[in-house]
């Protein structure tokens, strides 16, 4: 399987890359990890005329905390997150998510930023980033723009990113004290796209009630979804079994899955309910200092 012909360009700076995007417009595609794009090109389901390879741009592969946020560079690979001690010790939701994306070989190439820009509702990072309230930094011809993740996904494979913009960084808020997260996925086999998956993030107050709640849903809608009503259900409450069950039910009602080879919509809804329950329990446990 061979892609159609295209022209390959490898800029050495973000500014140069943006310039190329401005020039080629919709005929260009950005190549980061390439593990969604190149398979589509091989099947000729995508045939861009220009491929702008950003892999030769220096300084885009960071993974570090500063100014109250974790910065994840445009070229930071899934495997970098999976193996990072920082992520493992402080960002359990991200650590959970990183290890269930595709397979180790794909994780060595694929990037968090690219995954978000591809905006596949089956991508695990979308749900995870919604749960942790991440921000997407878009670099375009003018100054950088910071897009809250809630405003990023428009539709399947569609984002608010401009045709001349590149996702240069993802910023994740640093974990608050008494916070915990978890990401759970049910799949047909390890590394498959989810039948359904959920990310949960909670911050507890001194009394053990939920001060902050983030819940993201994967592959149960046209985009990655935030379970807003489920979050509201839980906010301010002590996350006991009743509260968790209420939130889980709310999430299963507000998601919007489609029936497909992985299962009927009702099954996916019910999975969301089950997974939210489990993921919230785990997140709360972690917020209380458990593993």
């Amino acid at each position: 399987m061979i892609p159609d012909r295209f022209e390959y360009v490898a800029p050495s700076s973000v500014a140069e890359a943006v310039g190329l995007l401005q020039r080629y417009g919709a005929e260009a595609k950005v190549l980061a990890g390439g593990h969604s794009l190149i398979p589509l090109m091989k099947l000729r389901l995508a045939s861009p005329r220009y491929l702008v390879d950003i892999n030769r741009i220096r300084g885009l592969a960071q993974l570090q905390e500063d100014d109250g946020t974790l910065g994840v560079g445009a070229l930071t690979r899934h495997a970098d997150l999976e193996t990072s001690e920082l992520i493992r010790s402080r960002y359990p939701l991200l650590a959970d998510a990183a290890r269930v994306i595709a397979d180790p070989l794909v994780r060595n190439m694929g990037t968090l930023a690219g995954s978000l820009a591809h905006a596949d509702p089956a991508g695990d990072w979308g749900a995870a980033m919604l749960a942790v309230r991440a921000q997407v930094v878009a670099t375009g011809p003018r100054r950088d723009r910071t897009i809250p993740i809630d405003e990023f996904f428009v539709d399947t494979f569609t984002t608010t990113l401009g045709p001349d913009e590149i996702v240069s960084e993802i910023r994740v808020p640093k974990p608050s004290p008494r916070s915990g997260g978890a990401y759970l996925k049910v799949e047909r086999k390890v590394g498959d796209f989810a039948i359904a998956a959920v990310g949960t993030y909670v911050v507890l107050d001194e009394k053990g009630a939920c001060r902050q709640v983030g819940i993201g849903l994967c592959n149960v809608g046209a985009t990655s979804l935030r379970a807003k009503r489920a979050e509201e259900t839980l906010r301010g409450r002590v996350p006991d079994e009743k509260a968790i069950a209420d939130a889980a039910r709310a999430a299963s009602e507000e998601c919007d899955p489609a029936s497909d080879l992985r299962g009927p919509a009702e099954y996916k809804r019910d999975l969301v309910r089950v997974l939210i329950g489990r993921a919230l329990r785990r997140a709360v446990q972690r917020a209380k200092g458990g593993a």
Binding site: V186, I195, G263, E266, Y267, D270, L271
Partner: peptide, 11 residues
């Protein structure tokens, strides 16, 4: 017997 088929049977 995929997860969905088990779930459907139990449902």
């Amino acid at each position: 017997i995929t997860p969905r088929r088990v779930w459907e049977a139990l449902e």
